[in-house]
Design a protein around this nucleic acid. Sequence first.
DNA 1: GATTGATCATAC
DNA 2: GTATGATCAATC
Length: 232
Amino acid sequence: MLSSATALPELSDPRVSALWSHARSLVGARLGDIADGLGLPVPVGNTRTKGWSGQIIERELGGTEETTHGPDFAALGIELKTVPVDRLLRPVESTAVCVIDPISIAAESWSTSHVRKKLARVLWVALKVPGRGPGFSVGDREVAGAALWTPCASEESLLASDFEMFVHEYFRKGRAAEITGHLGQVLQVRPKAANNRDSRRAFNNQGESVRVGKSGFYLRPAFVGAILRASL
DNA sequence: GATTGATCATAC
DNA sequence: GTATGATCAATC
């Protein structure tokens, strides 16, 4: 089991280097071709495709024995994130990190947070998107690069600052309902739910039990873009 | 055109 | 329903 006191596996761990090599070998490949190699169908027509890109890369890198969910490559402490980018490696979407429990997060600090653990080591796989909407297929997205990232001191400082702001100013004050996507320099709190009636238990500023929209942490596109440009 | 709030797909 | 993977689309 991983705990906050457990160090990340060494980068020299054979399993880490194998995963890294595998990811690098995908650069230039079309998602459609990767899916074909896995024997998986490529969505066609007006079929919705949310999540498909990430699933394909996860299954490709996970190998044939991958059967369970949970933290990506948990044994290696690695979180896999695919991110759609334009031709200049600029993310065209924000990156979801994890959902938030409005009650338990009030007791967290950055150093002990679930978010920090999730972001401690991320394998970014950038996917070049030729276009979206009718006329474009997710199968035509191409792996533009892969980066194994651990936040540097300045990046962690930005993340910690935003995190503590959300916790101190909002969650601990029972003001979770007042949070909007405008807050946070690099980390946002935005809805992350099936729909806007999907809620979670919380407390208001009177200490009364209320429900607030289910939300999660997201990384802003500019922040992820800087990571990719520095790594690819 | 970029951003925020809303929503979708799949597996358990 | 919950969790994990994200993208859609109305609004700024």
